[in-house]
């Protein structure tokens, strides 16, 4: 099983890295991440050796960029008819789903790791808390994984990449909106405030925030792992329906 998944992951990863569009994606991500940090976040004006300003934009960057990666995972295979070829290989749908997701997630990790100049900058200009920064990066990668899994499910639901992209953004937005004050306020009108406060924690921003603060919370890990697992489960179910397997 692991071998099958590894083969698919490798095939997909090589496909990513040989396409110019992947490089353009990484370039866009690194420019936006650093640009927002320095201009919108006023990073140098604050003079703080923390990267919370840098990480605070990640959920919103991923809101657009992860569905952009995820949209082609299955929709492109349906449209090009390569799905038939893929499923003639001696591997199950689940292996293909996990393999494709892992390749996309590793690619996202590559993009994220290329934001290293900001870590280097705070290390050269001050004495940052490296544990907190490492925790922030881990949280960011898990967040990217959660959004990718959801976007993969959106992609598996349609053969049209644009629809997959819009659908992916909508689902990711729902995961983010749970933490917004407006949503929490609405929630408090419907249920007991104590329950509303508990539910307010079950959203991507709140869970990601604890990593940025330097806290690796077991509940946050569970949140992202179950989000990825659910996204992949839904993807597999949708791919099976589409391919009749």
């Amino acid at each position: 099983m692991i071998r099958n998944i590894a083969i698919i992951t490798w095939r997909e990863l090589v496909a990513y890295l040989t396409q110019p569009v992947a490089y353009v994606f990484i370039m866009a991500f690194t420019v936006l991440a650093a640009g927002l940090t320095f201009y919108a976040g006023g990073f140098l004006d604050r003079g703080s050796a923390e990267l919370s300003v840098f990480f605070q934009f990640h959920p919103w960057l991923y809101l657009v960029l992860m569905p952009a990666i995820g949209m082609r995972l299955w929709a492109e295979e349906y449209r090009g008819g390569t799905i038939e070829l893929l499923l003639t290989l001696p591997l199950s749908t689940s292996h293909a789903v996990v393999g494709k997701f892992l390749a996309a997630w590793i690619f996202a990790a590559l993009a994220l790791s290329l934001t290293f100049p900001i870590w280097l900058t705070v290390s050269l200009l001050g004495q940052p808390d490296h544990g907190v920064i490492a925790s922030g990066y881990l949280g960011s990668w898990l967040l990217a994984g959660g959004f990718l899994a959801v976007s993969a499910a959106a992609s598996a639901a349609t053969h049209n990449q644009v629809i997959a992209f819009i659908f992916g953004i909508t689902l990711c937005f729902l995961l983010l909106a749970g933490g917004a004050e407006m949503t929490q306020s609405l929630l408090r009108n419907w249920v007991d405030p104590a329950i509303a406060e508990g539910l307010a924690n079950i959203n991507a921003v709140a869970r990601f925030r604890s990593f940025v603060d330097g806290l690796i919370d077991l509940r946050a890990i569970i949140f992202f792992v179950t989000l990825i697992a659910s996204g992949l489960f839904a993807s597999a179910a949708l791919v099976r329906v589409r391919t009749g397997s």
Partner: peptide
């Protein structure tokens, strides 16, 4: 939180 500064810049 907030005490670590970019000392070189300061």
């Amino acid at each position: 939180v907030g005490e670590r500064r970019l000392t070189v810049l300061d």
